[in-house]
């Protein structure tokens, strides 16, 4: 809908890494056990990817499916396409025990870009980047709030709750200030 705006109006910050708020991005939280009949089909129909394995994110163009927990997946897609995807999921999982709910507006999404993007997040999250897989979706905290991030392009995509978007932009900007890079 034309009224839809992202949490921070695509605010950005340029430091030794670039921070950009993107969106609004379409997201669906899908709760189901991996063995549920039709789940792979539902994800394929909704975002065109396979069922992601533990802690993995499967990216296909502007869509993706991420593993959030043993019975939760995060589906990412263009904002306007959530209704169609929900319909496809409902069709594929009819009669099964699952819960699909649109959460596009509950989230804020950032790109952290640049060769030292990992340093920006390493100042906020207790994550060993050397041991993070190429397609790993890591759920953790950034300072005091929950986040999830994964590698994308020459940096990372990071998702947090919408209400704390301004806080998270503040965190990322503070960590990315010129002069703060680690040599």
């Amino acid at each position: 809908m034309s009224n839809a705006v992202s949490a921070l109006g695509n605010a950005s910050f340029d430091g030794f890494a670039k921070i950009r708020e993107i969106g609004p991005v379409g997201m669906i939280s899908l709760r189901a056990k991996p063995e549920v009949k039709g789940l792979a089909k539902a994800i394929k129909a909704a975002v065109g990817t396979g069922l992601p394995a533990q802690r993995q994110i499967e990216i296909s163009g502007d869509k993706a499916a991420g593993w959030m927990s043993p019975d939760e997946y995060l589906l990412i897609l263009p904002y306007a396409e959530t209704a169609a995807a929900m319909a496809a999921i409902d069709k594929a999982l009819k009669g099964e025990h699952y819960l699909a709910v649109v959460v596009s507006d509950a989230r804020a999404v950032f790109h952290v870009e640049g060769a030292k993007a990992d340093q920006v997040i390493a100042k906020l999250s207790p994550v060993d980047f050397a041991k993070m897989g190429a397609n790993e979706l890591r759920r953790t905290r950034a300072a005091q709030v929950a986040v999830a991030f994964w590698r994308e392009g020459d940096g990372y995509t990071l998702v947090c709750f919408r209400s704390v978007a301004s806080y998270v932009l503040g965190l990322l900007s503070h960590s990315a200030m010129v002069g703060s890079e680690i040599k």
């Binding site: 005091q144 709030v145 209400s163 704390v164």
Partner: peptide, 15 residues
């Protein structure tokens, strides 16, 4: 660390 000023704590803001 970074917990000062505007980012002392995560203030939650409504739309």
């Amino acid at each position: 660390g970074e917990s000062r000023g505007d980012i002392f704590q995560p203030l939650r803001r409504t739309p």
